[in-house]
């Protein structure tokens, strides 16, 4: 069967002041459909870079990324946008909601770019917000929401287009531990709905509580892969 995510020899370099800065060096990794994988490692080790490349926000210097068998390198920018729109959902440490729009408008955004009708957009956005327990705050702007509520809205946005994969870059990094656990609970629900999850975190306890596998990256290379506490 095809892997949900298949990364092979992934290298990412930046040229800094004429010198190449190697951020990822030959990372190889497969994630199966429905799996929860946590990526750990010290700051600057390349976790976010890996996630961004898998999510089609960044392109590798070398190596391949296949999502459900499709090679991202073969996609032009237009196609890559469609990939981000349809197949992946993102969660960020800083939520990244558009501050001038209500929660509902924020959640509608991926549907808007997907060309859904206004009625369908509203209906699906409201349903997604309700599924993360934010049904009563749909017309609030991000500034009127707590951090946990903002991350819930972001989760609704991440799943509203029914992506197979959700990429979460330190989704609980800005939250207190209780709120963080609520968010993790919702991520488990996402996973129960069949989505593959790739999560970066600095918190080993969190990783152990949700991950099927924990991957540790140090200085751009995979140092270890362990089975998580849940499996």
């Amino acid at each position: 069967m095809t892997h949900a995510v298949e990364v092979e020899g992934l290298t990412r370099e930046y040229i800094m002041g004429g010198e190449p800065l190697v951020v990822l060096r030959g990372v190889t990794l497969s994630i199966e459909p429905g799996e929860i994988v946590c990526v750990m490692g010290p700051s600057g080790s390349g976790k976010s870079t890996l996630l961004n490349i898998v999510g089609g926000l960044d392109r590798p210097t070398a190596g391949t990324v296949r999502i459900e068998g499709a090679d991202l390198a073969e996609m032009d920018d237009e196609r890559l946008a469609i990939y981000r729109r349809k197949q992946v959902g993102f969660l960020f440490q800083s939520f990244n909601l558009i501050p001038t729009m209500t929660a509902r408008r924020n959640v509608e955004l991926p549907l808007l770019f997907a060309g859904a009708s206004p009625a369908e957009r509203t209906q699906r956005a409201v349903a997604a917000l309700e599924s993360v327990g934010l049904g009563h705050r749909i017309d609030h702007k991000p500034t009127e929401l707590s951090g946990g509520e903002q991350q819930r809205a972001a989760m609704a946005r991440a799943i509203v287009n029914e992506p197979a994969i959700v990429l979460a870059d330190e989704p609980t990094g800005n939250l207190d531990s209780r709120t963080g656990h609520e968010i993790l609970g919702l991520m488990r629900e996402m996973n129960d709905a069949g989505r593959t999850l790739l999560i970066t975190t600095h918190d080993r306890a969190i990783a152990e509580s949700v991950a099927d596998r924990i991957i540790t990256i140090v200085d751009g290379s995979i140092e270890s892969i362990e089975q998580g506490g849940t499996s």
Partner: peptide, 16 residues
């Protein structure tokens, strides 16, 4: 700028 980044992350194409 950041909003543009967000829109791209949620699937806006360059053309959009």
């Amino acid at each position: 700028t950041r909003e543009i980044g967000i829109m791209k992350a949620v699937g806006a194409s360059n053309r959009q």
